[in-house]
Amino acid sequence: MATIEESEKRAPWVLLSPALVTIALLLVVPVMFIVVYSFWLRTSVGGVEPAFSLANWREALTDRFYLDILISTVRIAAITTIVCALVGYPVAYFVARAKGVNRGFLLLLLMLPFWVSYIIRTMSWINILGVSGAVNSLLLSIGLIDEPVQMLYNEATVILGLVHFLLPFMILNTYVSLDGIDRALEDAANSLGANPMQTFWEVTLPLSVPGLAAGSVLCFVLGAGTYITPIVLGGPTDAMFANLVFEAIITQLDWPLGAVLSLMLLVVLGAVVLVYNRFMGLGHIAKGIG
């Protein structure tokens, strides 16, 4: 019979095993599998056969089309992240400094968008900016325009949709950092003669960098990995990299190419996460979500 000590040692692994098996079978092995799959060949009859061919990789890496869209995806995600940081920081600051019931209420409101489906939040902008949307209806009724103006389906509305989707992630993460700052440090800076601006730039802002960084990584990775927003709010030329993956897999049924494109996206976004992990540690992201 096992001693109590031995069973204590075994217990965590017994409890963890269902989760570890799930992650191994549904995430780790499948990702490793598509690495292999990306070298397989499409046959002339439309099937796929095991092989070692660099053709898929060559196509994706040498065709300017894919590279251009990868670059514009990174650019759109970067702009979105910067806008989220600039717009969200004062809000996080306000919530962190709010008192009592107000603060609880503001935090609860910040959670609400997470429970509203991404597709609904995205399509809601059609009601606002569309040809028969709120803005056009308002401008028509006050006589500023004679005919409805199409404001949707361009890069700006894609970025708008992404900011709307990702802003709560930025605010919550920054809030967690700001909330953890010992107020005595700010008081000390003030009593030593710093004016409020100096205190902010030299004490508060540097101490909130971990939250700002966690929020930025989430915004960037989620923003760069989406294909729904460009379909719903973008025009024909506003496709992002994940749209190419979706096209390859679902429309063209060119699965080896789809595997290559997925892996390219994984490498670019994985690099961002690794750099972040090197400097900040992944723990901060977990704090912001839980």
Binding site: I23, L27, V31, I34, V221, G225, T226, G258, S262, L266
Partner: peptide, 21 residues
């Protein structure tokens, strides 16, 4: 870290790898 890995992998990549596997 492994347990939160599915959040860190872009959902599109997760979707493609599970589908093809």
């Amino acid at each position: 870290t492994l347990l939160i890995a599915p959040i860190l992998v872009p959902e599109v990549v997760l979707a493609v790898s599970l589908l093809l596997f």
